[in-house]
Computed example of a mutant assay.
Amino acid sequence: MTSCFTGVESTGKITLPEENRAEKQSPEDAFIESYFVPQGCDSWRVGKAFYYTDEKLSFVFQAERPTFPDSVSLKGKIFTYTGSVEESPFGGEKKVVLLFECEGYKFRYDTDKTRAEIARMKYTPLIPPFIDLDDLNMARSLLKGRTLYIKTPMWYDRNGDAIDGRKLIPVEVLDIRPGNNVLPVEVWFKDDKGNEAGVFMSLLTSARSQYITFDRLFSFENPRLQYKEIQDEAWEQITLSRVKAGMTKAECKLSLGNPDEVKKIPTYSGLREQWIYNSGAYLFFVDGLLTEYRL
Rank of each mutant, 00 (worst) to 15 (best):
Y268T: 10
V185H: 06
R140P: 00
E233K: 13
D135H: 14
E28H: 00
D192S: 13
L283K: 03
E273Y: 05
S71R: 10
E19I: 07
E261F: 04
M247D: 10
G91I: 01
R65W: 05
A116P: 04
P66E: 03
A207D: 12
Q274F: 10
Q62E: 13
E233V: 09
A119N: 03
E251I: 07
I14P: 03
A139H: 05
L148E: 03
Q210P: 00
E18S: 15
I150E: 02
S219E: 13
E236T: 11
K122D: 15
G179M: 08
Y51S: 11
V173G: 00
R294H: 06
F130K: 07
F285C: 07
P125L: 02
S58D: 15
Y109D: 01
P178D: 11
E117H: 04
C4N: 10
V243D: 00
G40R: 06
T53Q: 08
K94F: 04
A281R: 01
F90S: 12
A197Q: 02
D164Y: 05
D70C: 11
R120M: 10
S34M: 12
A234R: 08
R166A: 08
L283Y: 07
L289C: 04
E55N: 12
Y149D: 01
E273D: 13
S84T: 01
G91K: 03
A245N: 13
E186I: 05
D215M: 02
L204D: 15
L126H: 14
G246Q: 13
Y277D: 05
L204C: 11
F31E: 01
Y51H: 15
F90M: 12
A250F: 05
F68L: 09
S269A: 10
D215E: 10
G91S: 02
F189K: 00
A197D: 01
R140A: 08
N278W: 07
T152P: 11
P178F: 11
L133E: 12
E292L: 11
E233N: 14
